[in-house]
């Protein structure tokens, strides 16, 4: 049985390190020696993988990164398959433009996690920073597929310009959650901050708790039974998330907006079973 390919961080780098080469699809077919000779961008210079990490194991389809600090960025970027497990916290852009496979962060992620993600599963056991599932600065579309599970809280602008996919947050979400959202689904078990759904065009935000305030540019459409929620919650039942434990709410309050933006997005507020 092949052992996972383990990268154990030797020291805390001074600058941020681009770890995007350390994904299964890029490492496939390479020996441990060849992997150790790969170059990583660190600030304005390059360093060797073997210099920053101690390597063990050989299965490049199952990568483990044992890290500390928040300097390791772009972990799992453009990944297409296999798995990456991060033992500890990681920096920004985790799962950037990810297309498949699974990233499991047994800690927190920095800003822009799941940024422009297209597919696959990103699990975050602790908190996620700002702009989770958002677009890169200057880009017009954020996350466009896949699933993000967050056990902790997320920062501001979660799902900013999000186009497709789903983000399930077991904790709280910061301000401007679902701002400029184009489509997709965000579910939050805890509270959400101010300006929920600002300039939202389409998409769904599911809330279990009453938000502090609903923007005045959203219209209350009343309480309804929505059949698609059964399908949604059934699809979630296999996920490693607390959302899997819940049945679909029998009725939800449907609040539509952002009408100031001619938006047809919806905030669905659970009213119990």
């Amino acid at each position: 049985m092949m052992r996972p390919l383990v990268f154990t961080q030797r020291y805390l780098p001074q600058q941020r390190v681009d770890c995007s080469p350390l994904v299964p699809n890029a490492l496939a077919g390479k020996s441990v020696r060849e992997v150790g000779a790969l170059e990583l961008q660190c600030g304005n210079r390059k360093l060797l993988v073997g210099e920053l990490f101690r390597l063990s194991g050989e299965d490049a389809q199952s990568v483990v990164i044992e890290c500390e600090g928040d300097k390791l960025e772009r972990i799992g970027a453009r990944m297409t398959g296999g798995s990456v497990r991060v033992q500890g916290d990681c920096g920004a852009y985790a799962g950037l433009q990810m297309r498949g496979g699974e990233i499991h962060v047994a800690g927190s992620t920095g800003a822009f996690a799941a940024c422009q993600m297209r597919g696959g599963l990103l699990r975050i056991d602790d908190d996620a920073g700002d702009f989770l599932g958002a677009a890169l600065p200057g880009e017009t579309r954020g996350m466009a597929g896949g699933t993000v599970l967050v056990k902790g809280n997320v920062g501001e602008r979660c799902g900013d310009r999000m186009r497709r996919g789903q983000i399930l947050i077991e904790g709280h979400a910061g301000d401007y959650c679902a701002a400029r959202m184009l489509a997709g689904t965000i579910a939050v078990m805890g509270s959400v901050g101010a300006n929920l759904g600002f300039a939202m065009q389409r998409g769904s935000v599911l809330l279990r708790a009453q938000p502090l305030d609903i923007p005045p540019t959203f219209g209350d459409c009343g309480i309804h039974e929505l059949a698609f929620l059964t399908l949604l919650f059934r699809a979630w039942s296999a996920l490693p998330s607390r959302f899997a434990q819940f049945a679909a709410p029998a009725r939800v309050r449907r609040i539509v907006g952002d009408l100031a933006n001619d938006g047809k997005g919806e905030i669905l507020l659970s009213t119990g079973r």
Partner: peptide
């Protein structure tokens, strides 16, 4: 124009608003 698309479990569904709620 009020119809809503939802991609659930790899399948696309349409929610069409009708007078008793939604036609899924």
């Amino acid at each position: 124009g009020h119809q809503i698309s939802k991609l659930i479990g790899g399948k696309r569904y349409w929610r069409v608003p009708v007078m008793d709620g939604e036609f899924l």
